[in-house]
Design a protein around this nucleic acid. Structure first.
Length: 562
RNA sequence: AGCCUGGUGGUGUAAUGGUAGCACAGGAGUUUUUGGUACUCUCAGUCGGGGUUCGAGUCCCUGCCGGGCUGCCA
């Protein structure tokens, strides 16, 4: 997994950090953090941030903290916090003893707020939401000062203590920083830094009746932890002046906030809010639905940490908005699994094949290679007998040119087994093809003959008697248009959900050794795709496979194009 | 509308005043007991207009286009 970073150009963030180090800034230290809010599950966009923060720290010999940004008990849950930790660990990153919570700093934050009041830089405001909004002004007009702006320090101190003591109802008062009501940056128009919230907090319980806002908590948390580079997404750019203002006015360690463009993927959505809706409105079956771009969903689908990390390495890092193509993600998964996943044989839609010249009650075991990309993976035995099953896709009665699978009179190779020739097509009463009668060439055992005769087509098969029945979930993109977030003329993103995003195949048959895989462990069904056993399937459902990604298929691409 | 921010092939990302490169996607081919993999070749780009310069994707001016901002969310 080690790669030479020497020849790779640095992205803009690594360039800044590299320069800071050579300039001796922060005594050459590099310390980052990944600061999710525990109000939802982590998704691919978070993975980009995780890889960035932990990756940068490692590359520069620094550290990366995990910090749960739990300043809003109205939305946050312990369940989410636990899922977040599990996901980060699963991706392969270790915060060691450096798990922090913004709530760890509530006392310190409170003291700093008091200091701001004492210095005449913050005041208690009695305005309600609407009044505050009216006085804030607009994008083009400056705001007007709150009538409470010049409240005496002593009164502010007294009121703030009473807010803390829970003496006022929610929403009745706020603590605001006194900055600049005329600033073109609305965030600087006396922003709220503490609000009254009579909510129980997962960590601090009912101890607090007031909670700091993001702006008053984030930079200070970074500061307390000795963070050197605070990496965040572009939407926080307008908050940077505030971040800087608090560090400067409090006279505390001042980390450098650097913003980068968040990850977007086409044919999906990448916002917690929208994912929440998909879940609550029942468009998907939970946060870990394999169609979801959540890490838990992707894990269940069969995505590996290695593939996701490779993807994050390849998407690039810059300030410009971007939409990555799904194909890159799929490439990263195939690239990883091609090297590591063992191969098995299986058919999704079985078609019975009887070998007329194969002895009735004979069976045999044939050798199959576990992974052609990895000799160390060894070989296994697979059962063979007179009746086998192939996939219906691999037979055509009247094939087009260049089709080199099975057809009447055509000889093909059964992978690892024999050459077979189709002699007869049998139909049931409805006219549907129900069976193929074929002959086999005993000289071709293992899949080759001494005469070196060319057999172009090779197809997978399973032994009819021993193959395991199973069902397979075939997933496709969740949305039918590339950018469902961009709703044209009043349409909602849910209007674009791909009705074919999940196809359940109940007829599949696989070689018995498939059942030996651990749930979640990736393997390839040759010529079909990469799969894993579903981790959530109930026992009564039998063997349930999730298709992680199909194999590249230049044949279907070619035929569909015409 | 004001402020902030950004514009390089289809997508993403390099080139820090000196040959516009890489990856994915697309196309063609070689190899192949997976129409997979691997390998080879190929298509395709500096938002427009001015300027500075021997030389501009890069610097300056200007226009156009995209994104963000009017939560007591983060």
């Amino acid at each position: 997994m080690e790669e030479s970073t020497a020849d790779k150009p640095l992205d803009f963030i690594r360039s800044i950090i590299s320069e800071d180090r050579t300039n001796g800034k922060n005594e050459g230290r590099v310390h980052t953090r990944f600061p999710p809010e525990p109000n939802g599950y982590l998704h691919l966009g978070h993975a980009k941030s995780i890889c960035l923060n932990f990756g940068v720290a490692e590359e520069f010999g620094g550290l990366c903290n995990l910090r749960l940004d739990d300043t809003n008990p109205a939305a946050e849950k312990t369940e989410y916090a636990e899922a977040i930790m599990a996901d980060v660990r699963w991706l392969g990153f270790d915060w060691e003893e450096r798990l922090h919570h913004a709530s760890d700093y509530f006392d310190q934050l409170f003291d700093w707020a008091v200091r701001l009041i004492e210095n005449g830089k913050a005041f208690v405001c009695d305005l309600n939401f609407e009044e505050m909004r009216e006085l804030r002004g607009t994008l083009t007009e400056p705001g007007k000062p709150s009538p409470f702006r010049d409240r005496p320090v002593e009164e502010n101190l007294d009121l703030f203590q009473k807010m803390k003591a829970g003496e006022f109802p929610e929403g009745s008062k706020t603590l605001r920083a006194k900055i600049d009501m005329a600033s073109p940056n609305l965030n600087l128009r006396d922003p709220v830094i503490y609000r009254i919230l009579h909510k129980e907090h997962p960590k601090t319980g009912t101890q607090w009746k007031i909670y700091p806002s993001y702006d008053f908590a984030h930079g200070q948390s970074d500061s307390i932890e000795g963070i050197t580079h605070s990496l965040c997404t572009l939407e926080f750019e307008h908050h940077r002046p505030l971040y800087d203002w608090f560090c400067e006015n409090l006279g505390i360690h001042h980390p450098q906030q650097i913003e980068f463009a968040r990850l977007n993927l086409n044919y999906t959505v990448m916002s917690k809010r929208k994912m929440l809706r998909l879940v609550t409105e029942g468009h998907v079956n939970g946060w870990d639905d394999p169609r979801m771009p959540t890490l838990s969903g992707m894990r269940r689908r069969g995505y590996t940490p290695q593939a996701i990390r490779a993807f994050c390495d390849r998407v690039g890092l810059a300030k410009r908005e971007n939409v990555i193509e799904m194909e890159l993600l799929e490439y990263c998964l195939r690239d990883d699994l091609n090297r590591r996943a063992e191969r098995r044989l299986g058919v999704l839609n079985p078609l019975k094949v009887t070998l007329q010249n194969y002895p009735e009650d004979q069976t045999e075991e044939l050798d199959a290679i576990n992974n052609p990309e990895d000799p160390d993976a060894g070989t296994r035995k697979i059962h063979f007998s007179r009746e086998i099953l192939i996939d219906r896709n691999d037979f055509m009665e009247d094939p087009p040119k260049k089709y080199f699978r099975m057809a009447p009179g055509r000889e093909v190779r059964l992978k690892y087994a024999y050459y077979v020739t189709c002699k007869e097509v049998i139909r049931d009463e409805s006219g549907e093809i129900s069976e193929l009668i074929c002959s086999y060439d005993p000289e071709s055992r293992g899949g080759g003959t001494a005469d070196g005769r060319k057999v172009k087509g090779t197809i997978q098969w399973v032994d009819a008697r021993t193959a395991l029945p199973c069902s397979a979930n075939l997933y496709d993109r969740l949305f039918s248009c590339p950018n469902p977030e961009e709703n044209e003329d009043g349409k909602d993103f849910t209007d674009f959900i791909n009705s074919g995003s999940l196809e359940v195949v109940t007829t599949a048959r696989v070689e018995p050794s498939v059942s030996a895989f651990e749930p979640g462990q990736p393997f390839q069904l040759e010529r079909v795709g990469y799969f894993c056993i579903d981790t959530n399937a109930v026992a009564e459902a039998g063997l349930v496979l999730n298709r992680s990604v199909a194999l590249r298929d230049s044949w279907s691409k070619k035929t569909q194009g015409k």
